[in-house]
Lab assay of single mutants.
Amino acid sequence: MQNSHSGVNQLGGVFVNGRPLPDSTRQKIVELAHSGARPCDISRILQVSNGCVSKILGRYYETGSIRPRAIGGSKPRVATPEVVSKIAQYKRECPSIFAWEIRDRLLSEGVCTNDNIPSVSSINRVLRNLASEKQQMGADGMYDKLRMLNGQTGSWGTRPGWYPGTSVPGQPTQDGCQQQEGGGENTNSISSNGEDSDEAQMRLQLKRKLQRNRTSFTQEQIEALEKEFERTHYPDVFARERLAAKIDLPEARIQVWFSNRRAKWRREEKLRNQRRQASNTPSHIPISSSFSTSVYQPIPQPTTPVSSFTSGSMLGRTDTALTNTYSALPPMPSFTMANNLPMQPPVPSQTSSYSCMLPTSPSVNGRSYDTYTPPHMQTHMNSQPMGTSGTTSTGLISPGVSVPVQVPGSEPDMSQYWPRLQ
């Protein structure tokens, strides 16, 4: 039975679970980093996980050691009161100082060594604690504590007292930064006198190289990059290397530039699409467009005044059976039934097929058609009795279509119309 579990990581490298990497692998990681390889490249070359490479390099940059820390136990506290007071002093002298600059000053002034120097995250935590204590304490208590930490007896009751030896409130920041720059020169002199001055200088240079600022491109470089971006948004590694040799930039910087440029292009394309949609959409909808001609068919113009009344309900007709019959029939052209047409008796099958359309009241044959006459024609229609054979009435077949029909004066039988409509 094995005491430890061995495995293979996602890159194909072998590791022992819970145990640190061998010293030979750690040394190779540092050597590759000094030669300029990126952590992701080191991870692929040595088949070590990216997190492990970053952790080893980060500890090497901070402490200069590649040895693993002790497994188990607690780390001794490195942010001692003396170190905290120095950090507060540096922050007062130059409020814009960075944590890694404070760390360098602690090393250069001999406050800490490589073994007990606090990390950048520890210094940031100390600065946050100082800021929170400043908010919790009152103004007087804060000034007393700062005077105690600074070891001075001057008056701290006013704002300019934060910067000793100065009279203009805006000047101390520059003086403090100048003092810090002077301390940086002392850093070089002190570290050069040490035993491991060369190694420390190499480590600091490598650290500065990794902690780079934003790349500033010249106009020629920007023009070359934009020209390549117009050709393709995704250049391959050969195109990037050719462009890197042409404009004297690292291939990694060119790759990052193209990634950022593609993101910018997507944002601009989104804005262009929004403007295009806004320009195509009308600002207001016309009133006429809300009524579609496919839904509402136009009603033909009436030929006679009587045809303006298109349904039985508008003429005072309360018989719903006839109203439904007229509205359900398709529109037909106007025609006239003459008196000489043969009077065919209704076929029983045809009569039964339209039995649902006729009223059940037996008085329908005896009703006159003056009910369908509009009010303004009552006088004219009353002067001509319906009993004469020459009287013409208008029957409504569908809305908007008038059918003048000659009705025999002897017997106005409704059943004569249905064979004609089939």
Results as ranks from 00 to 15, higher is better:
Q27A: 10
R147G: 10
L11H: 07
C52H: 05
P22N: 05
Q10N: 06
C40G: 07
N129V: 04
Q89T: 14
S49H: 03
S96T: 08
Q47L: 10
N114F: 12
V111W: 14
Q2W: 14
N114S: 11
R26F: 01
P22R: 06
R69I: 04
A79S: 05
R92D: 08
G58E: 06
H34K: 12
I42F: 01
K145H: 06
I66V: 15
V48S: 03
Q27K: 14
E133G: 11
P76F: 02
G18V: 02
R26C: 01
L106P: 01
S43R: 03
L149P: 07
S35V: 15
T25N: 05
V30D: 03
Q2K: 05
E93G: 11
E133W: 13
I42Q: 01
K28E: 14
N50A: 06
M137V: 11
G18I: 02
P22I: 05
E133V: 13
I29K: 01
V16Q: 06
I66R: 04
R105I: 12
E31I: 06
D115M: 14
L107H: 06
S121C: 05
G7M: 11
T25W: 05
L130Q: 10
H34P: 00
N114D: 14
G64P: 01
G138T: 08
G73Q: 00
R92F: 10
A131Q: 08
R105L: 11
E82M: 09
S54A: 15
C52S: 08
Y90N: 08
E133S: 10
V30L: 08
P68H: 05
L21Q: 05
D41F: 08
P76H: 02
S24C: 11
S122H: 04
K134M: 09
D41N: 13
S49Q: 03
V83P: 02
L46N: 01
N17L: 00
A33C: 06
L21C: 03
A99R: 03
C52M: 01
E31V: 14
T25D: 06
K134G: 09
R105A: 12
A37G: 04
D115A: 07
L21E: 04
S54I: 15
N9G: 02
I71D: 02
A37C: 07
F15I: 05
S96L: 14
V120R: 01
I123M: 04
C94F: 12
V30P: 03
E101S: 11
S49K: 03
D104E: 07
K86C: 07
R44S: 07
G141W: 12
